[in-house]
């Protein structure tokens, strides 16, 4: 299936696009015009940094789950490495999302941690994927490790979905769009912010994909335990 030794490098156009979009979103994020809002004030700019982290994390973890399913179907070590790479980048995005969210919460809700359903859900989500790393490290046999990690990864992704999308809707949340709070679009009267927000989401996702690709390539080239293309 894969005839090369390591995953193919990301296409240069995508790399260029990632850099371009991120430079644009940072520039517009710090200097662009934003709506003046009570309480939020200038912190509304965090929308361009905090929210794309969650989009990025979910997409990385989705990709990771897809590679794990592929591993279960075809037993190619390359798929396992890709799954690990994507979940690592997903974890990094998750930690950055939690951190930027906590800073934002301190300035708008008044405390670093308010036990908001989405805060709790994302903390548990991070625990899920940290546990994935612990699971990987506790197998000596590479095939066993890859198989168990793939099963766990699929299970973890399916447990993350009710956690992030269903449970927060059953309780009140401080986040926009929950518990009677106005949705995101209410802060965005003239649609100006969308012109920065969506490019930022695409840019961060591409950057995450690039990072995962680099990590997977590095990993494949440096490990001798898991030769690509070997069938069990």
């Amino acid at each position: 299936m894969n005839s090369t030794l390591a995953p193919k490098p990301l296409h240069p156009v995508l790399k260029g696009l990632a850099i371009l979009l991120l430079v644009y979103s940072f520039f517009m994020g710090w200097l662009g015009d934003v709506p003046r809002k009570v309480i939020l004030n200038e912190s509304v700019r965090n929308l361009y940094f905090h929210v794309p982290m969650w989009f990025g994390m979910l997409l990385m973890l989705l990709g990771s789950a897809v590679y794990s399913i592929r591993y279960l179907l075809f037993q190619q070590f390359l798929d396992d490495t890709q799954a690990q790479a994507l979940s690592l980048v997903g974890l990094v995005f998750g930690f950055l999302g939690l951190f930027t969210g906590m800073v934002w919460a301190q300035f708008t809700w008044g405390s670093w941690w308010s036990g908001d359903p989405k805060q709790n859900a994302s903390a548990v989500g991070l625990l899920l994927y940290l546990a994935y790393m612990v699971l990987r490290s506790s197998f000596e046999d590479a095939r066993n490790r890859a198989r168990m990690a793939a099963v766990y990864n699929v299970l973890a992704f399916f447990c993350l979905i009710p956690l992030l999308f269903i449970l927060p809707r059953l309780t009140d949340s401080l986040h926009p769009g929950n518990g009677g709070n106005p949705g995101f679009s209410a802060y965005d009267l003239d649609g100006r912010m969308r012109w920065v927000f969506y490019p930022a989401v695409v840019g961060w996702t591409l950057m995450g994909w690039w990072l995962a690709n680099l990590w997977a390539r590095y990993r494949t080239l440096t490990t001798s335990v898991a030769p690509p293309n070997s069938k069990p």
Partner: peptide
Amino acid sequence: AQLMPVLGFPLLVP
């Protein structure tokens, strides 16, 4: 024995 709670607790939270 150590893996059980580490893997199980976060999965059981929902």
